[in-house]
Amino acid sequence: MNIFRLAGDMTHMFSVLVLLLKIHTIKSCAGVSVKTQELYAIVFATRYLDIFTSFVSIYNTFMKLVFLGSSFSIVWYMRYHKAVHRTYDREQDTFRHWFLVLSCLLLALLIHEKFTFLEVLWTFSLYLEAVAILPQLVLLQRTRNIDNLTGQYIFLLGGYRGLYILNWIYRYFTEPHFVHWITWITGLVQTLLYADFFYYYFLSWKNNKKLN
């Protein structure tokens, strides 16, 4: 464990808890894409299957439970909680995210480190996490409301990915044979997606304009 990874995990946990807490408190999910939240729930469900079979550390297991619990709770709120569901922007959140799931699954069947059930699903979860933010970014551009709820959420998610890249650089130089191309490439692609968002977010903030 290194400071970059710990900071990354904390930022990631904070991003999902901020979102869950806000939805719970103001009973609204305006501007939030439920499709992105469903993709994240699938990412965690397929990545943390080993939670029952292998034990890494208390920290690891605890964090997995936090991510699983928060992502499924957010989906539940947005889909089944009456007050929150009413504020969901169904007309604008139209990204066909099941195609993302399908293409990531096919890609995982083609490119993986080992062809075992757990390993293919784990690789699938990496590919899916890289593109999971797309429905949210599309919704953001459509509704143009970069209100604090989604802005902070995406900012923290981007921060978590950036810290993870620093973590991989650190581990590469401190641990022999720490080479995981798939993790690195998908992590880089995901961070680049955020970089694009940050560029426009910063511009809209600097010029005090609506996000375009």
Partner: peptide, 10 residues
Amino acid sequence: KEFDAAHDEL
């Protein structure tokens, strides 16, 4: 065992 080593990250 190698699964854990490669996937000790969240």
